[in-house]
Design a protein around this nucleic acid. Structure first.
Lengths: 154, 154
DNA sequence: TATTGTTATACTCTATAACTATA
DNA sequence: TATAGTTATAGAGTATAACAATA
């Protein structure tokens, strides 16, 4: 009590959303910076990680998981293919689609360079938090990142 | 034990950072959507909020607080000025700089439309969390959003 | 008819560099 | 000389629409 609804709205607008944005921006900057030495962007690393987790996927499916349009995926995969990190295999069940897969070089780069690099950034970034806070944060963000009930993918 | 360093790195890379990004993106989408009815963008709302908090500021100072270049600020302020939400007053101490200030219309729009709108988005977005989780989240994000020691503004 | 990948195209966002007026 | 604002411009990044091959 003593705080009007308008004041509450003002305070709320100032809190979680802005902090979430600021924190995400701060982390992204650090990640881009760390990856710069490898010539890869954060998004490209994301493609590799998705493939590492899920195995061969079509370009469109990768895009779906990263919220990237299929037309945008073309150039993204081009870059990774030129560097020999992924290969455009054909999906034998549906010959319209590719089966984009990690090459050996891609797997090695992930394991020996990219993951350690990003892990170090995370370490420095989240290092200010205690273990309990980090666990809390992961759990809470997991709740927020999931789509709310009744709002699945199209 | 039983988890290699490489495996740890892989897991770590998969956790906080991605979640942070996903959550921020999800929230931003909802905010942009909610603001669309007002014809304002998330960034423009940000300018108004900064002015409401700090009082009249130069364009460059607003940009500093929002991580926006001064050349980019020009158009941003143009839009808000055309809509009558801010005014370009002159800083009497330094006549090179403007003193951008909220107009009465700007203050009213914030109080009666924009803050309630964004507060509702926050409410729906963070509504899945309990009160304790929300408090936790705000506190932890506050730690992360702050620049680490020895990395202040230029 | 619908879908995958592709291309051309356009649009948004942003920053860089050069200019002006003040300091 | 340095700084606030401005402008022109160019570079990312992205999406839309139309097309070929396949379903």
């Amino acid at each position: 009590m003593g705080v009007s609804e308008e004041e509450q709205a003002r305070l709320l607008a100032r809190s979680t959303g802005w902090l979430l944005n600021d924190a995400a921006r701060a982390l992204n900057q650090r990640l881009e910076e760390a990856l710069r030495a490898t010539g890869l962007r954060w998004r490209e690393y994301g493609v590799l990680v998705v493939l590492e987790e899920a195995g061969p996927l079509s370009q469109q499916e990768i895009g779906r998981r990263l919220a990237v349009d299929r037309s945008t995926m073309v150039h993204l995969v081009d870059v990774l293919e030129e560097r020999g990190l992924v290969a455009r295999g054909r999906d034998r069940a549906d010959r319209r689609a590719y089966a984009i897969e990690l090459t050996g070089a891609g797997q090695e780069l992930l394991a020996h360079v990219l993951h350690p690099l990003t892990a170090e950034v995370h370490e420095r970034f989240a290092g200010r938090l205690g273990r309990r806070d980090r666990a809390h944060l992961d759990r809470i963000l997991g709740l927020l990142a999931a789509p709310p009930a009744g709002e699945g993918p199209a």
